Simulated assay, not measured.
Amino acid sequence: MTLLSLQNMQTKIEQYSVLHDVSFDVPEGGVFVLLGRNGAGKTTTLRSIMGLWKPNPGSVTFRDQDITGLHASDIAKRGIAFVPENMGIFGGLTVAENMILATANGKFDQTRLERIYTLFPALKKFWDKQAGTLSGGQKQMLAVSRAIIEPRELILIDEPTKGLAPAIVNAMAEAFREISANTTILLVEQNFEFARSLGRDMAVIDDGRVVHRGTMADFVADKPLQDRLLSLSMFEEEAE
């Protein structure tokens, strides 16, 4: 079943056209990965889905309902969360205060909170610490936790492993596997090893256009296609 559908989506930022006719479907369940070179339009795609930038023309459909042009807060109320590349946490607030701000009514569902503690034990340890004092990996854990403290059907996550140590990346992968068992994830990621370990379906965007759609398994098996669409640089970085 299709959960999210983008049809002929175009987005302009000021006078510049960034997305050109972007179309793909995200099936319900698991992890859908959006790949592409730096500057290809991946982040713009996520922000356009979330209503932070307005696609025109084109449409964004979530559970067969048109959400194109809705305010980001209204989109969030429909069960979609966004974890931006800059994580979006408040450094001057404690971990607890950051989490409270992400709840609907300022109160935690204890079952969900305990699940987050299981996924990210460091958050319980640093619960009363200022978020700005956390390591990069801990901040990313907090950002993801904020996205799942309320029930969500879809989470958009932008470059979650950027700058993280390998051990933290592995822990994040395990957490994403568990989260995606109940919540669909649309993931933008440059770390191809991380992306292919999680992704079931995928698309590649280049110069604001979708140039490939398919399963991750088929894409992994086709090295010439990887090299052509993503360039060797991504894979060389992972091998270092």
Rank of each mutant, 00 (worst) to 15 (best):
N170G: 06
F176P: 00
G199S: 12
Q226I: 10
G51Y: 05
L134Q: 07
T215F: 06
P57C: 09
K77T: 05
D21H: 07
D158I: 07
R63E: 14
M202Q: 02
N170D: 14
M234C: 02
L34E: 02
P121C: 08
I13G: 06
T118Q: 14
P84H: 07
F176W: 04
G136W: 11
F219K: 10
D201Q: 14
K125H: 15
I157W: 11
D64R: 07
I149W: 13
L34I: 09
L198M: 12
A76H: 08
V169C: 05
Q15I: 01
F82P: 07
V95Y: 06
L186R: 10
N182G: 06
T44R: 05
R213Y: 03
M1E: 06
K77F: 02
L156Q: 01
S23W: 03
D109L: 04
V210C: 05
D201V: 00
V22W: 02
Q226D: 04
E174G: 14
K125Q: 15
I89K: 09
G137S: 11
Q110V: 10
F126Y: 12
L198I: 08
L6N: 01
D66L: 01
T45P: 11
G39E: 06
L4Y: 00
K162M: 05
T183L: 10
I80N: 06
Q65W: 00
F82M: 15
G58N: 08
L225V: 02
T183Y: 04
M172R: 14
S5R: 15
L230F: 06
E238W: 00
I89L: 11
I157C: 07
A221Q: 10
T183F: 03
R146N: 05
I67L: 09
K124A: 14
A147E: 01
A171R: 11
A147G: 10
L229V: 13
A96V: 13
R196L: 03
L35A: 08
G51L: 09
H71C: 07
M216E: 02
R146V: 04
G106F: 11
N170K: 15
E174F: 08
K129V: 03
F235H: 09
T94Y: 13
W53M: 14
L101G: 06
A147S: 13
L34R: 14
S23Y: 00
G29H: 10
V83I: 12
G136T: 04
D21R: 07
M50L: 09
T2P: 01
D201K: 13
L19M: 03
P224I: 10
N56Y: 00
L101C: 14
N86I: 02
L134W: 09
L19P: 03
T11C: 14
A102H: 05
F235N: 00
Q190N: 07
F192S: 15
S17K: 14
L70Q: 15
N98W: 00
Y16G: 03
T118A: 15
G163C: 02
I89T: 08
R47S: 15
I179T: 06
T183E: 01
N56L: 02
H212F: 15
F90S: 12
G136H: 09
S5Q: 14
T118G: 13
